[in-house]
Design a protein around this nucleic acid. Structure first.
Length: 565
RNA sequence: GCCCCCGUAGCUCAGUGGAUAGAGCAGUGGGUUUCUAACCCAUUGGCCGUAGGUUCAAUUCCUACCGGGGGUACCA
């Protein structure tokens, strides 16, 4: 962005102070009245050149002032250079920047990015805490796709493991009807009851482990039971994912690796990476330098673990998809596990793709943590329903002014949007305390604010009977609000790049919010339809750009925006 | 014990090696004969956890400590 200005600045500094190299970087000042771009290069050079910062800043601003793209350049104490760009230069930039909105076309031959997220467990409904990883992963997948990457979105379903043996024992003891007739909540109740009764009767735990081992060894009736439970679970997940605008390319779960672990186990043993530890367990002992506790690969009784399947999964993904990158979204509690996993892969001598365990904070209630075993989780579907009901109530209260044709659809959009935006607008590493009122905001910095701003802009365009407004060729001057809005619109593509690089979708949410603020301020102070030309064309174009950036950005965040509300 | 994440306004949170640290909610006062007032404008409110260090410049980087959360071999 603004290469012309950068080159000019660098050249003039080089010639004025007879230096070989200088790199000028620009910041976009947040404060009004500081121009469109600012640099601190004079402060940075001061020591090296043995000159006062202001002296350098003044020389630079004088040189920049001569350029036609720059309306005004100014040196400000203690050594900043602020520049205000000419309207024509801003319009030129704005035209160029529209490409970022439409998205890039993926190069089909490029190696893909595997994004794993959500990871629901079989026989349990999605809890409200699942929403964090689910929407973060989806937003990140959307972002990669938007920027032209081939993405394989992957739901790694927890359909295997000791928990399953426990459920089988619980069903055998207390189940009262065929498995396939259970709802997901009834299955959860069995699981919770198991843990309650296991407090009094510890032998239950052993029986659960035994049942899982039997399943792993191929017990036919357990296998049939397992298949029924998987079917019940997948059906119940479909609806929630649809409401969240979440979808996956693959949902190969843990059971898929059932027959793929043996090869990895053999390899690890042969390479002496896996060794026998306490109680006959198979472990990886890391070198001192790794500074990590041992990694358990097989239990003492020979049963496999999460780690066993993850190793097999890593192998399978590499061999099958040759990905350039693998991202796995998990909460922060799993950090060590993935560090151990990757270190183990390296010790096995595997050639690995770029890998990141994208971490996020945990959700808990005010006084206690969330635990599926104890049953103190909130069902995500119920939370979505409550969110939508709250939105419905607000829509009803505004009956006289609301402009939607479909209040039910709008409520769905707003309610779920509010919840999702609440999560995606904050730094993913932060822990969340579940609180209805805080998680479901409908005003201020919230999804409905973004949605309202979009509807408002679309409404203006409908009245103007135009969609793809063209920018005027040139314009003499810009109002302060116009300039601010243009400046924010210009940053969209940079924000997307930063969000991708850091895997921090909240940067997009924050940006969209700022854009709305700028648009609403502009909307409030400048007439659009009644403006004189060329202002009218400019303002319509800004309205059109804003609406389209909002829609594109919101979509990446899984949010939908209405045409009217 | 060791390791990781978090600590910014009453509350919930953004933010950055640079110019007087920003929003939302809550509080106070304004704005609709104008394109949607789910909005806008103004205003109250901060030793940026504490103490050192690096730097022309630290809330941001480094170290220690304090507080909260998590992990630390047979859960995932």
């Amino acid at each position: 962005m603004y290469e012309e200005v950068t080159t000019l600045a660098e050249e003039s500094l080089k010639s004025a102070f007879r230096i070989k190299d200088v790199i000028v970087t620009w910041q976009v000042p947040r404060e009004r009245g500081r121009g469109d771009l600012a640099t601190t290069v004079a402060l940075e050079l001061s020591k090296k050149l043995k000159k006062k910062p202001m002296e350098i800043a003044e020389a630079l601003s004088t040189a920049l002032q001569k350029n036609v793209s720059i309306e005004h350049a100014e040196a400000v104490a203690p050594g900043y250079v602020n520049i205000t760009l000419a309207p024509s230069a801003l319009l030129r930039e704005l035209n160029r920047s529209r490409e970022a909105e439409t998205g890039k076309v993926a190069d089909k031959k490029a190696r893909s990015v595997i994004v794993e997220y959500s990871q629901p467990n079989i026989a349990k409904p999605l809890g409200v805490h699942h929403i964090i990883g689910t929407v973060l992963g989806q937003a990140t997948s959307n972002l990669y796709r938007h920027l032209g990457h081939n993405v394989i979105s992957w739901n790694y379903i927890g359909d295997w493991g000791t928990q399953f043996g426990k459920l089988a024992v619980a069903y055998e003891k207390w189940g009262e009807k065929p498995v396939e007739d259970h709802t997901i909540d009834e299955l959860l109740n069995l699981y919770v009851r198991f843990h309650e009764e296991a407090e009094a009767d510890p032998t239950l735990e052993d029986r659960g482990r035994e049942a899982f081992r039997a399943l792993e060894k191929g017990d036919v009736s357990l296998r049939a039971f397992w298949e029924d439970v998987v079917a019940v679970t997948k059906t119940s997940l479909t609806d929630v994912y649809e409401r969240l605008q979440v979808s996956f390319d693959l949902d190969l779960g843990e059971s898929f690796y059932e027959d793929k672990m043996e090869a990895v186990l053999d390899e690890g043993k042969k390479k002496n990476v896996f060794t026998i530890g306490e109680g006959g367990a198979l472990i990886v002992a890391f070198p001192e330098s790794a500074n990590m506790p041992p990694y358990l690969i097989l239990k003492g009784d020979g049963a496999t673990l999460y780690s066993t399947r993850d190793l097999a999964q890593m192998r399978y993904r590499i061999d099958t998809y040759h990905p350039a990158k693998i991202l796995i979204f998990t909460d922060i509690a799993q950090k060590l596990h993935f560090e151990q996993l990757m270190e183990t892969c390296r010790m096995l001598g595997w050639e690995l793709p770029e890998f990141e365990n994208v971490l996020f904070g945990r959700m808990r209630f005010v006084d206690k943590s969330m635990s599926t075993r104890k049953g103190n989780i909130l069902n995500l579907e119920q939370v979505l329903d409550e969110a939508v009901q709250r939105a419905e109530k607000i829509i009803r209260e505004r009956e006289e002014t609301v402009q939607t044709d479909d209040p039910k659809e709008l409520a769905e959009m707003m309610g779920i949007g509010a919840l999702v935006y609440g999560i995606l607008s904050q730094n993913r590493k932060m822990d969340l305390v579940f609180d209805w009122d805080k998680m479901l905001s409908f005003e201020g910095n919230s999804a409905p604010y973004i949605q309202y701003t979009h509807a408002r802009a679309r409404s203006v365009l409908r009245k103007a009977k135009t969609d793809a407004a063209e920018l005027p060729k040139d314009i003499d001057s810009l109002t302060e609000k116009e300039r601010l809005l243009i400046g924010t619109l210009l940053q969209f593509s940079k924000v997307l790049d930063e969000a991708l690089e850091t895997h921090m979708p909240h940067k997009i949410a924050n940006y969209l919010y700022e854009l709305c603020q700028d648009y609403n301020a502009f909307y409030n102070s400048e007439p659009i339809l009644k403006a004189e030309e060329p202002s009218k064309s400019l303002r319509l174009a800004l309205t059109s750009f804003t609406a389209s950036v909002l829609k594109t950005g919101a979509r990446i965040l899984t949010l939908r925006v209405p045409e009217r509300m």
